[in-house]
Amino acid sequence: MTRADSAPLFTEGTLSTLQLIGYLAVAIALMVIDHRGNYLARIRWGMSAAIEPMYRIAAMPSQLANRTSLALADREKLTEENAELSRQLLLAEASLNRYRAVRAQNQRLQQLLDVQRSLGIGVQLAKIIHVDTDPFRHRVLLNVGADQGVQVGQAVIDAHGIMGQVIEALPNTATVLLITDPTHAIPVTIERTGMRAIAHGSGALDSLELPNIPISADVKVGDKLITSGLGGVFPSGFPVGEIRSIRNDSSGMFAAAVATPSAALDRSGEVLLLHVLPDPVGPPEAASLVGPPASLAGDAPSSSAPAASKP
């Protein structure tokens, strides 16, 4: 036991409370500074070459487990899954056909209205990395980052609805704050009535909270929530959730609703990053001149018809 020789048996004397106070003061100062200015993001950016490999290594066991379960999946299960998938494909095909019809109709209507600007949505596919930085915060990491064009503030969706927004972009990874995080709030409208509300994260992956709804408001269980586009972070019109229950809040002045998120937040896999930026905050641009569509107005002697519309 030569190990104990160098170490004093009683360490009380060498350990000063002053030292502790000093370190605590530094830690608290760092926290306050970081809370105000968010310098941690910059430090993380600088150290990303070291941090990102750690994330990949930490995610390896779960990837391995996934692959093993895939390899060991028995035949019966695969057949069942195949049947289920082909049924889903059929359904998807049917709804896709309907969508095509609607799109064609939409195109016709747009042309009719001479709408110049058609909404092109650019998306980027990303995969979720299985890393857990804190079980009580709802954040996920994506395998794309600033080098792939990810920016802070981009909305993240999956096949069913809004998942969250990018809050940090490292060179090759990005952190997404889910809509169910207790610190997150998203402006929504109720699809049926157009009423605006704000959906707060509840801290549970399967519910959103809508406090402070006027008691007289027309809200029912089963109402769909879509993004309103207000606030300038999320583009409008994407599904957010569905009202699950409504009750009066403790003060009795307002109703509070609980909604189930549309997106499959607890299931891992691929997500889409939206490139289309939401409508800018502020007053809209002045409306263009009202009149018949340019193609109809072509032969009429009108000074307002643009010269470019003539062949």
């Binding site: 500074i33 970081d34 941690l40 993380r44 750690m54 930085t133 804190d134």
Partner: peptide
């Protein structure tokens, strides 16, 4: 730095 929480919290 690794978990991306508030700087100084773990410290």
């Amino acid at each position: 730095v690794v978990t991306g929480e508030l700087l100084g919290e773990h410290a």
